[in-house]
C-alpha cells in the first residue's frame, strides 16, 4: 500500500471523527455539570442548516459558523429553561429537542437543498495543504485544529481551573454546592450553552466541510454517537479523543467496505442508532455505582433550591 492511500485513509478518519469529537466535548461539559442533554442531534442539525444558509448567502464561512453556533446555543437555552428553570424531565426534554431540531432544520433548509458552497478548507498555503505527504498535517479544515485545541482546553479547564472545579462540584453534589454558595442553576446554564455552541460547530462541520451541502437529517445520527461516546469515555476528554477517532475509523472502514461490495453494519442498525444509544447511555448511567464509572453523581437529577 502506498503512502498516499494511508494518508488519505488517515485524513478520511480524522474528517469523519471531528464532528463527533466536537459535539461530545460539549456534551461532556454539560454532563459534568450534572445535566443530561439528549438533544445533541437536534442542535447539530440546527447548526448545520443555519451555517449552510448563512455561508451560501454571504459567502463567509466564519460568519456562517458564528451564527450557526449562536442558533444552536439558542435552542440549548430553550432546553435549559425547560429543564433547569422549570425542572422538566431532562431525558424527555432532550428527546423533544432532537425532534424539534430535525423538524425545524428540514423546514428552514427546504430552499437550500441541492445547492453547494465552497468547502471550508485548510488555511495553510497550498504548498503545504496539498503537499502529497505534509497534507496529513496541514491539509484539514481549520475546524479540525479547533477540535484538537478544544480537547486540550476542556481537559485543562476541568482539571486545572477553579471554574472547572466549581463545574465538577455542581455535577457531583448540587445540594452541597448550593449550600456553599455557588449558583447551581447558573453554572448549569453556562454548561448547557457551551454544549449547544459545540453541537452547532459540529453541525457546521457537516454542512461546510464534509459534504458541503444541505440535505434533511444531514448528521445521520452522529449526535447519538457523540452522546454514547461521552459515557464510554468515562467523562474524560482524552479518552473522548481516542474514542471519536476509533469510531471514525470504523465508519470509514464501513464506507470502504460498502464501496467494495460488502457491508458489515446493517443499515437498519444505523437507523436504530438513536434508540440504541439512548438505551445504552441511560443503562450505563444507572449502572455507574456498581461499575465504578466516574459519572457525575447528580447527572440528570433536577435541582430545586430551597428559598
Amino acid at each position: 500500500m502506498s503512502d498516499t492511500i494511508i494518508i488519505s485513509i488517515i485524513m478520511t478518519v480524522i474528517g469523519a471523527s471531528t464532528p463527533i469529537l466536537l459535539a461530545a466535548l460539549g456534551e461532556l461539559v454539560v454532563e459534568k455539570s450534572g445535566v443530561l442533554n439528549l438533544g445533541i442531534e437536534g442542535m447539530m442539525l440546527i447548526g448545520a442548516v443555519v451555517g449552510f444558509a448563512v455561508t451560501l448567502t454571504t459567502g463567509f464561512h466564519l460568519l456562517g459558523i458564528v451564527i450557526a453556533m449562536f442558533a444552536s446555543t439558542l435552542s440549548a437555552m430553550l432546553f435549559a429553561y425547560l429543564t433547569l428553570t422549570l425542572t422538566a424531565n431532562q431525558v424527555a426534554t432532550g428527546l423533544a429537542l432532537t425532534i424539534f431540531g430535525i423538524g425545524i432544520s428540514s423546514l428552514m433548509g427546504e430552499p437550500y437543498v441541492g445547492k453547494t458552497i465552497e468547502i471550508f478548507s485548510s488555511w495553510f498555503p497550498a504548498s503545504l495543504a496539498e503537499h502529497p505527504q505534509l497534507r496529513v498535517i496541514f491539509g484539514y479544515s481549520p475546524l479540525v485544529y479547533v477540535s484538537l485545541a478544544l480537547t486540550f482546553g476542556v481537559s485543562y479547564f476541568l482539571k486545572k481551573t477553579r471554574a472547572g472545579l466549581i463545574l465538577r462540584a455542581v455535577g457531583e453534589s448540587d445540594i452541597s454546592a448550593h449550600s456553599i454558595g455557588y449558583s447551581v442553576i447558573g453554572v448549569r446554564y453556562a454548561a448547557v450553552a457551551f454544549g449547544g455552541a459545540m453541537a452547532g460547530l459540529a453541525g457546521c462541520y457537516f454542512s461546510l466541510v464534509l459534504t458541503p451541502l444541505w440535505s434533511e437529517e444531514l448528521t445521520a445520527g452522529r449526535g447519538w454517537i457523540a452522546l454514547a461516546l461521552v459515557v464510554f469515555a468515562a467523562w474524560k476528554p482524552s479518552r473522548l479523543l481516542l474514542g471519536a477517532y476509533l469510531f471514525g475509523a470504523i465508519m470509514t472502514l464501513e464506507l470502504h467496505a460498502k464501496a467494495a461490495g460488502f457491508s458489515f453494519i446493517a443499515p437498519e442498525l444505523l437507523a436504530a442508532m438513536p434508540y440504541l444509544a439512548t438505551i445504552v447511555v441511560l443503562a450505563l448511567i444507572s449502572l455507574r455505582k456498581s461499575s465504578g464509572l466516574a459519572a457525575p453523581a447528580c447527572l440528570a437529577k433536577p435541582f430545586k433550591p430551597s428559598t
Binding site: L165, R168, A169, S176
Partner: peptide, 18 residues
C-alpha cells in the same frame, strides 16, 4: 453543616478550595 456539604469524588484539597 449537619449534613456535610462535601463532594465525595473529590480530594480534601479540592473540597476545601471550593
Amino acid at each position: 453543616f449537619q449534613h456535610f456539604s462535601l463532594f465525595e469524588a473529590m480530594t480534601v484539597l479540592e473540597n476545601i478550595a471550593l
